[in-house]
Computed example of a mutant assay.
Amino acid sequence: MNRWDSTPVIRFFGGRKLLFILGVLLLIGLNILVFSSVGFIFDPFLVFIKTVALPLILSVVVYYLLRPIINLLESWRIKRIWGILITLLALVGIITMLVVLIIPFLEKQLISLAEELPRYLQDLINTIDEWLRNSIFSAYYTNLFEDVDGMIKQIPDYISSYASETVEGITNIISTVTNVVVALVTLPFILFYLLKDGHRLPSFIIRMFPPKVRPEVSSVFKGIDHQLSAYIQGQIIVSFCIGLMMYIGFLIIGLEYALLLAAIASVTSVVPYLGPVIAITPALIISIVTSPFMVVKLVFVWTIVQLLEGKFISPQIMGKSLHIHPVTIIFVLLTAGHLFGIVGIILAIPGYAILKVVVSHLYYWFQKRYNRFVEEENQYKIQ
């Protein structure tokens, strides 16, 4: 018997395997301790990541949207470089048309809504207040209102205590605007080279690995490419369909700011489950202030759109390529939002899909290497 397995406790917990696992955990802990102590060394690297992250993410999204068009033009025997130029010129023309025709109208609606929003909110508060005072909860509401009124009187103190953070908030806004401008300026250049040489990038990276593992690494890249392509292309089409259906429905029921509210619904629908709830909130406030019957019509339109999207549009366009359970999606969105804010919510699902592909392949390789009882026909199938 090996001296490491000499005691019953060690043998019960796995013998040498237990000591190996404890050693790995100890090394991981030491690495975390060292990195946390010398984290300032990585500050320039983090600044670089924050600077290039936004233009790179935008370029990848547009790349997956335009790649099918470039491949189609190339199949028509149009040189790739000319196909890229034609596609980019067409994209610039579409964006220019949107800016000239639609954006000014949306801007007017947005300004009007911003001016009217305080009135809408005040009318909504008055309506709720009147209903609660005349309901069976009036006694509880009166006591609660006294507590809330006391808290409201303390608001000036809170404002003065946090006034020092105003400068920091303005600095963050300026930094965000600067990052967006840099992203928009660098986007065309990154996008051009992605469309031109992006299909060669996986092969270039694969050649860095030993020949023995290149087939497995290639399968990882194919899985990631499939997941990103299916999600980005499908989600954009689904979002456009939701916005169009919402706009038609709002026009039918006569809801104010129909185009703006539909645009908000289209943009927020990129976030599964949480997006529709966010999108319906401003429309619900306007409909409650307008009339009770408008609320009924809005709920009817929203329900019809969600049924069409959930039962027909998403299954046909996106299918079930991600294979992610709805509860998992909710937990991933909540966690990513808490850690990284709005950006985390937007990138949570594709990031989780990529991580799932990598972990699935790693598990398959581990199983194939260490489990000699796995038969070929029962091997884990990786998407």
Rank of each mutant, 00 (worst) to 15 (best):
W4A: 10
R11I: 01
G14M: 07
G15S: 14
L18V: 08
L19A: 11
G23Y: 05
L27H: 05
L27F: 11
V34P: 00
F35S: 13
S36R: 15
P44M: 09
V47T: 08
L56Q: 10
V61A: 05
V62W: 09
L66H: 05
I70T: 01
K79S: 13
R80P: 10
W82V: 10
L85V: 14
I86N: 00
T87Q: 02
L88V: 12
I95P: 03
V99G: 03
I102T: 11
I103P: 04
A114H: 08
E116W: 04
R119A: 12
R119D: 09
T127F: 04
T127H: 06
S135V: 08
Y140D: 08
T142G: 01
N143H: 07
D147G: 08
M151Y: 08
Q154L: 11
Y158N: 12
S164A: 12
E165Q: 09
N172T: 10
I174W: 08
T176A: 08
V180F: 09
V181P: 00
V181D: 03
I190Y: 09
D197I: 10
G198Q: 11
V213L: 04
E216K: 11
K222H: 09
I224A: 02
Y231K: 05
Y231A: 05
I232W: 07
I232D: 03
Q233H: 04
I236T: 13
G249A: 06
I252Q: 02
E256I: 06
A258L: 02
L259I: 12
L259E: 00
T268R: 04
L274T: 06
P276N: 12
I278M: 10
T281G: 01
L298I: 07
E309N: 14
G310H: 09
I313W: 05
K320Y: 07
S321Y: 02
F331Q: 10
V332G: 02
A336M: 12
G337H: 10
L339I: 12
Y352V: 00
V358D: 05
V358I: 15
Y364R: 14
R372N: 14
F373L: 07
E377C: 12
Q379D: 14
I382Y: 07
Q383M: 03
